[in-house]
Amino acid sequence: MALIKSVRGFSPKIGENCFLAENSTIVGDVEMGEGCSIWFGAVLRGDVNSIRLGNHVNIQDNACIHTLYQKSVTEIGDYVSVGHNVVIHGAKIEDYALIGMNAVVLDHAVIGKGAIVAAGSVVLGGTKVEPGCIYAGVPAKFVKKVDPDQSAEMNQKIAHNYSMYASWYMEEKED
């Protein structure tokens, strides 16, 4: 069972049909919608401020979601994919965005709907990534607009695949 811990009077609220890997950690002021998946080693640490996840968000292995005390919150929309080893710290990630493996997204950054943050990128605090754009590098910069159909197909496919992967683990528990 995942480590689910209350702190400072805040207890995590987990939506229906969520998969929480046995060694994931969800602490404090965290609320997630339905159908989310929190993978192995991932940490959602809502001890100093709030973390909000929409529906069908996947937080992949070893990702860390946190905030700044009294200064930033983390908001993640619906069908967002957060890759392995990602750090999101006090940022807003809009629907169907894709945050690539080992990327870092810092306080008050906004990642627009359907945008892609390339693997290994660092999105500096306050950066606004326009919807449907790819940002890459350290620090992350605009690379190009993505064809909306291509972005939707890739981002949606990954988000929906993670719902399928989570169902495999949930079926195992029922047996």
Rank of each mutant, 00 (worst) to 15 (best):
I4C: 03
I4R: 12
K5E: 13
K5S: 13
K5I: 14
S6V: 04
S6I: 00
V7P: 01
R8P: 04
G9W: 01
G9V: 00
F10R: 05
F10W: 04
S11M: 05
I14W: 01
I14F: 01
G15E: 03
E16R: 09
N17A: 12
C18Q: 02
F19Q: 03
E22L: 15
E22C: 15
T25I: 15
I26N: 07
V27C: 06
V27K: 01
V30H: 02
V30A: 04
E31G: 04
E34K: 07
C36H: 04
I38Y: 10
I38Q: 08
F40Q: 12
F40M: 14
F40Y: 15
G41F: 12
A42N: 13
A42M: 13
A42H: 12
G46L: 03
D47E: 08
D47T: 09
V48N: 09
V48A: 04
N49E: 09
N49V: 08
N49G: 05
L53Q: 07
G54S: 07
N55L: 09
H56S: 12
H56V: 09
H56A: 10
V57M: 12
H66F: 07
L68V: 07
L68T: 06
S72C: 04
S72D: 09
T74Y: 09
E75D: 10
I76T: 05
I76M: 07
D78A: 05
D78W: 10
Y79C: 07
Y79L: 11
V80R: 07
V80I: 13
H84Q: 14
N85I: 12
N85S: 15
V87Q: 12
I88E: 04
G90F: 01
K92Q: 15
K92G: 00
I93Q: 11
I93P: 00
D95V: 00
A97T: 03
A97I: 01
L98Q: 03
L98K: 03
M101V: 13
V104S: 07
L106R: 00
D107T: 01
D107L: 05
H108E: 13
V110T: 15
G112F: 12
G112N: 12
K113R: 13
G114T: 02
G114S: 08
I116M: 14
A118K: 08
A119D: 08
A119H: 10
A119P: 08
G120P: 00
S121L: 05
S121E: 02
L124T: 12
L124K: 13
G125D: 11
G125S: 15
V129R: 02
P131R: 05
G132K: 00
I134W: 00
A136H: 04
A136W: 08
A140G: 05
K141F: 13
K145G: 11
V146W: 09
V146P: 04
D147E: 10
D147G: 09
P148I: 02
D149S: 09
D149M: 06
